[in-house]
Design a protein around this nucleic acid. Sequence first.
RNA 1: UUAUUUAUUCCUUUACAGUCCCUAAUACCUGAGGAAAGUCGGAGCUCCGCAGGGCAGGGUGCUGGAUAACGUCCAGUGGGGGCGACCCCAAGGAAAGUGCCACAGAAAUAAACCGCCGGGAGCGAAAGUUCUCUGGUAAGGAUGGAACGGUGAGGUAAGAGCUCACCAGCAGGCAGGUGACUGUCUGGCUAGGUAAACCCCACCUGGAGCAAGACCGAAUAGAGGAGCAGUGAGGUCGCCCGCCUCGCUCCCGGGUUAGGUCGCUGGAGGUGCUAGGCAACUAGCAUCCUAGAUAGAUGAUUAUCAAAUACAGAACUCCGCUUAUAGAUUUACUUGCUAC
Length: 111
Amino acid sequence: MLDKKRRINRGKEYGYLYKNGRRITGKYIIVFIKENNLAHNRFGIVTSKKIGNAVIRNRAKRQIREVIRKNLQLVRPGYNMVVIARFNIKEVIFELIEKDYLRIMKKASLY
RNA sequence: UUAUUUAUUCCUUUACAGUCCCUAAUACCUGAGGAAAGUCGGAGCUCCGCAGGGCAGGGUGCUGGAUAACGUCCAGUGGGGGCGACCCCAAGGAAAGUGCCACAGAAAUAAACCGCCGGGAGCGAAAGUUCUCUGGUAAGGAUGGAACGGUGAGGUAAGAGCUCACCAGCAGGCAGGUGACUGUCUGGCUAGGUAAACCCCACCUGGAGCAAGACCGAAUAGAGGAGCAGUGAGGUCGCCCGCCUCGCUCCCGGGUUAGGUCGCUGGAGGUGCUAGGCAACUAGCAUCCUAGAUAGAUGAUUAUCAAAUACAGAACUCCGCUUAUAGAUUUACUUGCUAC
């Protein structure tokens, strides 16, 4: 699990990011990004019921969390991000998700 | 365990030392299911006015037992199915009342369409035959899921439980059984189906649910004005009674996204043995037991295990039911085939 300070856990913050954040769409994930004026990044992960049952949703969440953890040092700090899993994430292996994530970070000039 | 900061204790003071909390790093330990699922039934627990009475509403529906309880389970009874092992059934009441019974058919709780028989009238010598005539008749035909018990005999103008025998069904007695019910005798002679239609009968039923609810913290402002009412308004399902609380509405002014802790897991618990019981289950003894989160949990890579994996992830707890499923395991029996 990520540290408590690196998590987004208020429904309102998610709503704020959807409204005001920059939206970048990848092949398997969608990311909303907004500056947060902190020395670190904060993340939220969303897996909707469209993706599948609880087992599939939890697995997708774990894999996204691992991608974020693995590349924590690479990404520039000071942003809030919401990562949304798309419905086709359940069919792909870990490396492809990681590649997708890094591509989005590059596009946002955070890497 | 280490480190940093802060607070506190001790002390005249300082230092050393100790304790608690927060944060970070490291190490070690622990972490889902038979269905965790669907949320269909029941219960514990919590709060609401301790929930009292009546009506309404809802539920259950063969009998006896088990259980904290149930719409669950066990053992029976009665139906139905299967060659069989065995399986299935919301299975009370239709002589309390009402409704409905499509199409077909003359008629669907009401009967005469065809037919059969007697009488009358006409025709005819008679046999007989005809009818806008009259009466009897439910045996036969035709329709239908169902036509006012069935089969046979007597009986009759023709017929008819009109009479008799057997069968089905009904009522009552007796015997057996805790009981559902079974057996038998007697009687009168027949009573359509539908209650997952209304309904009747018996029993059960207050409501909301862990986002229940409790505590701590933060913030905190109304002796303001106007109108209305006092047979008023509100109070955790509907209506009436009973009970409890309070004036109410509008305007003006003020406040409001800050959370944390508990509830939160050891319990109607699992396993084994003994005893009781046909069984469900119960009792005693022994022994075993580690999720408890709060954006909400089993990651990535490599290796290995003989090989491989379905349905699927706890959110207060438990007992059931239902549905989804790869594989593995156990016992008893039935049927078929093959061999002896």
